[in-house]
Amino acid sequence: MELLTWSVFAMAVPAVIFAGISKGGFGSGVAFASASILALVLEPAVAMGLMLPLLMLIDVASLPAYWRKWDWSVARVLLAGAVPGTFIGALFWASADADMIRLIIGAVALLFVTWQAAQALGLIRLGARFGARTGLVAGGVLGFTSFVSHAGGPAAAVYMLGQGLSKTAYQSTTVLVFWAVNLFKSGFYAGMGIFTRETLLLDLALIPFALLGTWLGIKAHRMVPEKLFFSITYTALTITGTKLIWDALT
């Protein structure tokens, strides 16, 4: 599919703004919805390659607002686990076809929504303070899912929500962790040819929208009810996850 068209641009603009709002104000848990939506109309590798430079830009743009407000002890454990997880994700990607990647992205989206629903119903409770071993496992899952679907947020959330962090410390730690993970995996993306001339050119055109979304997210961190934001996101993830799985299987 030709990338440098108005139809692709029109699909990518709201997806990128949404990613900026999510990462800039509400953690990285649902930012991967943007890549999931783009994977409905683009090859998964193209969607992932298109989004990663923009996610990295959003990370950098978000850092000043949360500078030194993170919990380094939590971030350090997650990053230690994310390194081997990223290697495993790269090995999986190299041997998987496009439909397998669609299946993984769709499954992660639906599992995330199911997890959140279970928490809302009280079936799962995250109150205990997890130890470093749990954090390393969560970091490994973070690295893998981040590589194959930009969906490392849920794994990070499982560990971080049990650490008793404030909202701002949670957000700041999330920004720091995913800035580092995205920077690390970008080398693999480049070496594996996931970035292309067309994806990078389209990224240049989408930079203003990524920055706009980040600015809106930082403002919304204090103003917009999280319940409304996440309700809309979970609905979008359910639809896109189901469609991706259907496309992969059929």
Rank of each mutant, 00 (worst) to 15 (best):
I101V: 12
I194F: 13
I239W: 12
T214Q: 01
Q116I: 09
H150K: 12
V224C: 04
F112C: 08
H221I: 00
L211T: 03
L216Q: 00
T145H: 04
P225A: 06
T240A: 14
A157V: 06
Q116E: 07
S146P: 05
P225M: 03
F209D: 00
G106A: 09
P154C: 09
W179L: 09
R197H: 15
A210W: 04
L176R: 04
D203M: 12
T168R: 10
T238W: 09
V175P: 00
K219P: 02
G140F: 02
L111H: 02
F147P: 05
P154V: 09
A155H: 12
L202I: 06
Q116F: 10
V113D: 06
G217H: 01
L121C: 12
G191F: 05
A169S: 14
Y189K: 05
N182D: 15
T134L: 11
A109H: 00
A151G: 02
F112V: 01
S166F: 04
L204H: 06
I124Q: 05
K227E: 09
A151K: 08
L176Y: 08
W179C: 08
E198V: 13
A190K: 01
L161D: 03
F229N: 03
T174D: 14
G162L: 02
G106Q: 07
L204R: 11
G135T: 08
P154F: 04
L103I: 08
V108K: 00
V158P: 03
I207A: 02
G162E: 10
A169T: 10
A190C: 12
S149Q: 02
A107Y: 03
S186K: 06
